[in-house]
Design a protein around this nucleic acid. Structure first.
Lengths: 199, 199
DNA sequence: ACCTGAACACCGTTCAAGT
DNA sequence: ACCTGAACACCGTTCAAGT
């Protein structure tokens, strides 16, 4: 059992930084996130992170990107092995999104506070693009089945996604009255169905 | 013209701190907000702010509270001297909220990121309470006129507010595609009307 | 009551230098 | 290539002391 005299750090500093960063984000909030503390936790010098992220902001951007990737996967997974009616698929997607939001409140906040200028991270906007296409696909499928009103998919999808996101944001910021968590999500889903149903 | 040899600072340090803080919040974002810089800008020592805000967080809380107060006023004002139909009143309120959001993006973010535990600022939750009552009143009035479906006002009002807030949040975080700003708000308003109309 | 100055324990970022 | 150590210019917070 050759105890390697610890390698450069313990494998992959870049990945380790991201993992640890997300933990402290979840546990102690975004303001408590410090590069120096991260480095201390991982047993490297405080200057080491700069080899992998030129900036603190660069680390936050990478965190946001990873978040969007995971959210995309979760939303895609919510559509697997499920009924084909629009109501069922919408229900699953809404619950997937809200579930992710409540389980990763601080991360979602970060994801939406990262600047979304076109100049910003190429990969990030590509990722956003990818999963926003999923809600568009949901709407298009609903239209094919005659369960969603006619019209440009983007223009119908926007209010739908807007409602979904608004509920998730309010829920995670603790602004919803306690009674709301009871029927709140059900009411929101029913309301989306009414808003997107054919006349 | 007696040049008073500058008073303690220049009038009311507490108010001056809040004003300046909101300016830098708007111009340079929340991470650039520093107590020491605020103090420098106002020509007082870096320890002076602590007489008026025990904490940096206390200043942020006060900022958020002021924001909710102003938002409440704006939404109330949007209902003055306007037609009585639900469609008109809803339209005015949505535009008031979204207008405030886009004009004060960073502040709105701050308002919703302040912890909303019941233990948090008494005044803050009272203020939130006050203006959330306004949307409830809008719904109740619409029901009286037979333009909004029957049911508990809170359960009908939640999806409505959720949509409104979601749009404002997406718009201010720059996540809406450029095409969306064209018809986006109109579409959202029409969708809210459909979602809350009687069957 | 309101503010100052110094002190303490932190930050992010940069850069020579080591292996 | 990857990391260290020291240095620089910042932070927030506290506390004796001044007026």
């Amino acid at each position: 059992m050759p105890t390697r005299p610890r390698p450069y750090h313990h494998g992959d500093l870049r990945a380790a930084l991201l993992t640890r960063a997300e933990e402290t984000l979840r546990e102690k909030g975004p303001t408590a996130l410090s590069l120096r503390e991260l480095a201390r936790d991982l047993g490297v010098s405080h200057a080491a992170p700069s080899r992998h992220f030129k900036d603190k902001q660069a680390l936050l951007d990478a965190l946001a990107l990873a978040g969007f990737e995971r959210l995309g996967e979760i939303m895609a997974a919510s559509q697997e092995g499920i009924g084909e009616s629009f109501a069922e698929r919408l229900d699953a997607m809404v619950r997937a999104y809200v579930g992710f939001a409540t389980a990763n409140a601080a991360l979602l906040d970060l994801m939406y506070s990262v600047k979304h200028d076109p100049e910003a991270s190429e990969a990030l906007s590509a990722s956003v693009q990818r999963w926003s296409a999923q809600t568009v696909e949901l709407i298009a499928e609903g239209q094919r089945r005659g369960e969603v009103r006619e019209g440009p998919v983007e223009r119908i999808g926007l209010p739908v996604f807007t409602t979904l996101h608004g509920y998730a944001d309010l829920a995670t910021s603790g602004m919803l009255p306690p009674e709301a968590t009871e029927h709140g999500l059900d009411d929101v889903i029913a309301y989306i169905l009414r808003g997107s149903a054919p006349d």
